[in-house]
Simulated scan of single mutants.
Amino acid sequence: MTEGRIPVERRRRKPTKSGVLLSEDVIVDCALRLVGQHGGDALSVRRLGAALGCDPSALYRYFHSTDDLLLAASDRLIGEAMDGFHPERMAWRDGLREFGLRIHREYRAHPRVAALAAYRVTRRAHEFRAVDAGIGLLRRAGFGEEDAVRHYSAFVDTVLGHAALDAAYLALPAERREADDRAWTGEYANLSPQTHPQLGAAREHLPLMAGSSFAVALELLLTALEVAASG
């Protein structure tokens, strides 16, 4: 696929061999399904064409590259996360918490897509809305424009970083996830307190290391922002 924006009038309007009427949404639906089932290697025009029952070249009329399609899929997740979100009705801290939880939850629901795209900039409508909302919440907290942008960057990177980390974990085969989780009650719990005194002292709490630390990290960050806003 090549770079550049595809004019609307060039896009395919007749049904494919399987009777599917192609559109950007239909292609994104298919991409999300294929990546969810088979991982990033499934994001190819050949596999998409086969799944949609069309010549792969027809996809060029909607997306210029598989990367362009990946960004559209990522923006879809942002849109679904933001659906029904009304930050103007919330206190700024509550709004940021809800913002973070929504994005994290949506990416966890699509872990293989999140692992590919959580660190990307989609440059599309849903992301525009999300960034505008996040900066707006921080301005309502009392930050000036520069600090609002700086703090939003730290906030969203924390959210997306945890989303990507948790997504990568969820994308592992079940037996590997279970083995990693068992380590805290197995190998770590059996270490000698003579050689690892801090682990020995905290042994009964080590199972807390299994699973996601996102909720704790989010509250720590929100508290830090609240302190900075009142300083």
Score class of each variant (00 low, 15 high):
Arg124His: 00
Leu70Met: 08
Arg33Pro: 04
Ser192Cys: 04
Ala91Met: 08
Leu170Arg: 10
Glu98Leu: 08
Arg182Met: 04
Leu21Val: 12
Lys17His: 05
Ala133Gln: 12
Arg11His: 14
Arg124Phe: 01
Glu80Gly: 14
Val28Arg: 14
Gly100Asn: 00
Glu178Asp: 11
Arg203Ile: 03
Leu199Asn: 05
Arg112Lys: 15
His205Arg: 14
Leu48Cys: 02
Glu175Tyr: 14
Val35Trp: 04
Arg123Lys: 10
Leu137Ile: 12
Leu221His: 11
Pro87Met: 04
Arg13Asp: 07
Glu175Ser: 10
Phe214Leu: 03
Ala163Phe: 05
Glu204Cys: 07
Asp41Arg: 11
Phe128Leu: 11
Asn190Pro: 04
Arg124Tyr: 02
Leu59Met: 01
Glu178Ala: 15
Glu219Trp: 02
Arg176Cys: 00
Gly161Thr: 15
Asp147Glu: 15
Arg89Phe: 04
Asp68Trp: 00
Gln198Pro: 00
Met90Lys: 10
Val35Ala: 09
Glu226Ile: 04
Glu80Met: 13
Val121Ala: 08
Asp75Thr: 04
Trp184Lys: 12
Gly144His: 11
Leu48Ala: 02
Tyr188Lys: 10
His110Leu: 13
Glu127Pro: 02
Gly136Glu: 10
Pro15Asp: 13
Val113Gly: 09
Val156Gly: 08
Gly36Asn: 05
Ala73Gly: 09
Glu145Gln: 12
Phe155Ile: 06
Glu106Trp: 15
Asp181Gln: 14
Leu32Arg: 09
Gly4Glu: 03
His38Ala: 12
Gln194Lys: 08
Arg12Gln: 11
